[in-house]
Amino acid sequence: MRLRLRQRSSTGLGADDDLSRTDRVVRALLLLTALIPVLALLFLAAEMVNSAVPALVYAGGDLFTQQLFTFGNLYATAETVSHGIHAPLGAAYGALPFIVGTLLSSAIALAIAVPISVGAVLALVERVPRRFQPALSVFLELLAGIPSVAYGFWGILYFGPALAQHLYPALSRLGVVLPFMRGPVGAGEGLLTAAVILAVMIIPIIAATTRELVRTVPVLAKEGAVALGMTPYETARTVTLPFIRNGILAASVLGWARALGETMAVLMISGDLLNALPANIYSPFSTIAATIVDLLDSALTDPTGMAVHALAAIGLILLAITLATNLAGRVIIRRVTTGVLPVGRGI
């Protein structure tokens, strides 16, 4: 029998010299399946680019700078031609309001969700007796699992109107100092309501990761802090939080990516403002994802097919933003941990 010590170049079972024929066949089959997610990713990206090109050429830089987004007169025989591409009369594909709406709503959501997640997890892990922790963790799983449309339902029928009635009038008094807080506050469909609901939706992502991180903080360091006479707050501030800071950052970025791509809840609560930027923080608005769902139906009636291309173009912008944030989040996660953290909307 040979005995060889060798650098392990492969994972798990190892890819070696003494594979049987069955082993090789099985390995090849498994490799094929492992390629499927990557191929799906490439296919999705290629299709989006492919479908977006005519609209990208037609709109050019207007895509990022103009506010008017219209499919044009779908019944007119005349056409508008721009950069050599034909589209229905008057068609314009300015996506600025959708881009702003997407970034703004998710940024506000993140600003709300991060402190709440971290605070809640600190309370849960450090202060709640261990036997109650699983019961409370169920709520995180529930929040992660409750479908987007149920958030939307709750938002339009209960939560939004309640906020508009009780919280927003008080907030609008801050308008004296912060102009974007000024009224009118509307009926509860709009930017702030959507952002709050997005926050609730991404809390489980940030909180679940933070919970695992807090549990990895070495007990010895905490005991040292206690021995120095620190209060629990001082221990949290000087030991626990610095230890997990980068992890929280990574979790926040992943949560942000989720908020950017969220569709149904935003569609139901956004108030669907087209062709204008939100006037204040309560104003109706729209996001890229919500707009795609909302307009795909009517885009299909465009005889030139440009409307569908235009939706692909804004979808491509969304894809680029989410992929960039996701990659950034994963790079940070890889740098801070060797272990495995819960990822995404997972239970």
Binding site: S9, S10, T11, R27, V38, L41, L319, T322, L323
Partner: peptide, 27 residues
């Protein structure tokens, strides 16, 4: 990814799979 892939190849495939998870469902 866990048992058969060479380390480097696995890490690329894993990145692809994780990136796929980040694609908005509407796309």
């Amino acid at each position: 990814l866990a048992e058969f892939g060479p380390r480097r190849r696995s890490s690329w495939l894993r990145l692809g799979s994780e990136t796929l998870a980040g694609i908005p469902s509407i796309v």
